[in-house]
Design a protein around this nucleic acid. Structure first.
Length: 260
DNA sequence: CTTAATGTTCCCCA
DNA sequence: TTGGGGAACATTAA
């Protein structure tokens, strides 16, 4: 569910609701979402005031008056400001005014104390400048799809947006990162920035279950050119969109518009 | 019944 | 040391 545009939308809907609130108590019920001592984590957050809510890569960083929480939504995680707990609710925060629920059927998401993992992320794709971006591309031996998915290279891209960005760049997912020309690297950088900005404007992609913190779906899926369109026709050249497995992920591309 | 799904990590091998 | 492939994690929907 959640790549950079979706997490950004969650943060924007969450921040006004959470900032200034105090967490009265919390309860965690999943040994996957909250590995380690869940009762201890609940004690750590109890009584803390929420100072800020921000996105870093695909993480939501909730800074408290003492310490911080890092939330990763995995594939099916949701942070909701309203609703009732279900069998898939694995985190319940009772606030001085309201409640915050963490729902996650597949439990690939994580709620962690501190920002240790956040500090290991690469630069933000909307902030990295072209020279640095090109330099990093040149130093890598892998194909572009795997590199763009690598959170230590740029933080926040996932399977949907990598496929869409590569389509808009005219670059084949298996193209070697180190062999891209300066012009193609610049095109990739521009497509990354433009695609992410537009997707944020459309409040993310709701493919199956993504919703923001208020339960609203995004609209960017209507603008997808390749992701989820295997077998359908390319909107530019009319060729059937192909689907293959790259870097262990379903990868959608146009074999005519995207060159290796 | 089988397959794939918006993610990450770990293990094995080259 | 780097990087690719595959499996694992848990659940649902097609």
């Amino acid at each position: 569910m959640p790549e950079l545009p979706e997490v950004e939308t969650v943060v924007r809907t969450l921040a006004p609701y959470l900032i200034g609130r105090t967490i009265l108590s919390a309860r965690f019920t999943s040994r996957f979402v909250t590995p380690g001592n869940r009762a201890k984590l609940a004690r750590q957050v109890a009584g803390r005031r929420i100072d800020s809510v921000a996105r870093r890569g695909k993480f939501i960083v909730i800074r408290l008056d003492e310490g911080a929480l890092a939330v990763h939504l995995g594939m099916t995680g949701k942070l909701l400001t309203a609703g009732v707990a279900t069998a898939h609710t694995h985190g319940i925060f009772t606030l001085d005014d309201g409640v915050l629920l963490y729902d996650d059927p597949r439990q690939f998401g994580r709620i962690e104390w501190g920002d240790a993992r956040v500090r290991k992320l690469g630069p933000e794709p909307l902030e990295i400048a072209l020279p640095e971006f090109s330099r990093t591309l040149r130093g890598r031996k892998t194909h572009v799809k795997a590199l763009l998915l690598n959170q230590a290279f740029v933080a926040g891209l996932g399977n949907i947006y990598v496929d869409e960005i590569l389509f808009h760049s005219g670059i084949h997912p298996l193209a070697h990162a180190s062999r891209l020309s300066a012009a193609r690297a610049a095109k990739l950088h521009r497509a990354m920035v433009e695609t992410l900005r537009l997707a944020i404007e459309y409040r993310g992609s709701s493919i199956s279950d993504y919703v923001d913190a208020e339960g609203n779906r995004g609209d960017f899926q209507a603008l997808h050119r390749v992701y989820g369109r295997g077998g359908e026709l390319c909107t530019v050249c009319g060729t059937a969109i192909k689907k293959m497995v790259v870097a262990g992920r379903g990868t959608h591309y146009c074999s005519v518009c995207q060159k290796r």
